[in-house]
Nucleic acid binder design. Structure first.
Lengths: 190, 190
DNA sequence: CTGTTTTTAGTACCTAGTGCTATTAGAAGT
DNA sequence: ACTTCTAATAGCACTAGGTACTAAAAACAG
């Protein structure tokens, strides 16, 4: 293997790496557009995709559609953020949330605080048995950074349950480490 | 117009209504599958779609994909939740967030607290000029319910900016009403 | 100049359609 | 019975954005 072959190979390799990255960030490009972008023929792009196992445009679009269809539902429309593991109304609730790429700062891979808050808050709200429950106040502490891939186990315990409001303490752990603590005051509208 | 003609027309009308509804809830069906479902020919389905202005499968998939793509990006991957209107580093920042259906409890159409928190938290973090900024503590109050369609204007003011941490006050309003107030303590990792 | 890799070109085929032009079935009006 | 209408069906040419395959050209190493 000589220098030029290595260089050619590197050109190909580099193009394929860039192609992967580009399609990841911008999945809605046809082979023709990609070919123009890289200054190669459409066939080369097809070969690259084949080599990299990247499906065709329509499959990519479909994937995004199906994926996000479920994701938006589970992230935004479900009653509890995360997966509800236990629920003893007016007493205690436990949920689990796995930190994925959508939860972290891309640069540091550390989870954004509001996702921990969201898990805790939605748990505090759902542990209370009433028609309408809304968060009134919250006092929260983020005691340790949470990284990509970690599993957050959140536990909400009802402290004081009055007619119109309740105090709920939530503690979130990763393994044995406490990463989040919060006191929530929630209001009930019967 | 006789009885039979009306009946035929009703059959057509009814089928078209059902078709609209079906495609709305299940947008990933081909004309062939739809034809089978309704016991008519593919051409009839095509005519129906034409009459109802329903685009073809691929366009429908694309729409879902693009829609959710932008949504997940703006909800989960952007640096600031909402739209950044002003940024004076280490002093003040303002953002706007319009409450859509993805932010509310479907039953009550009231915004979930963690979205207000997310807007405020991300603003408090982004107003600080440092390599890495993470939320350490937060003390928040939700002073008024926020309903679907309302626009939240969030204002973050830096109170105390030390070497390793800063105190940021955030106030969120809908029009002149204060709906959220929070004190955030953020930590800097230089 | 030869051998290898890389790239390009071209063909047949596929899906899920559009757009157009018949044709057929069934009922209504006369 | 004959015409007229609507609804439904059928067929054909064409499209985008591909797959899968074969063949040829280009680039480069030794």
């Amino acid at each position: 293997m000589g220098v030029r072959l290595e260089m050619r190979a590197r050109n190909k390799k580099q193009r394929q790496q860039e192609l992967s990255a580009l399609i990841e960030t911008e999945p809605f490009m046809t082979d023709e557009e990609l070919a123009e972008r890289f200054g190669v023929s459409v066939q080369t792009i097809r070969l690259d995709r084949l080599a990299l196992g990247i499906p065709e445009l329509r499959e990519r679009i479909k994937k995004v559609a199906e994926h996000n269809y479920g994701k938006v539902r589970s992230l935004e429309l479900s009653e509890v953020i995360g997966e509800l593991l236990e629920l003893d109304l007016n007493r205690l609730a436990i949920s689990m949330l796995e930190i994925g790429p959508e939860h972290v700062f891309s640069r540091t891979r550390i989870a954004r605080g509001h996702h921990l808050f969201a898990q805790a808050n939605s748990l505090a709200v759902s542990v209370i048995d009433a028609e309408v429950v809304l968060t009134g106040m919250a006092d929260v502490r983020f005691t340790r950074q949470v990284k990509l891939g970690e599993r957050l186990i959140s536990k909400a315990v009802v402290q004081d349950n009055r007619e119109d409001r309740a105090h709920v303490n939530v503690t979130t752990k990763v393994g044995d480490d406490i990463v989040f603590e919060g006191q929530f005051v929630v209001f009930k509208n019967k």
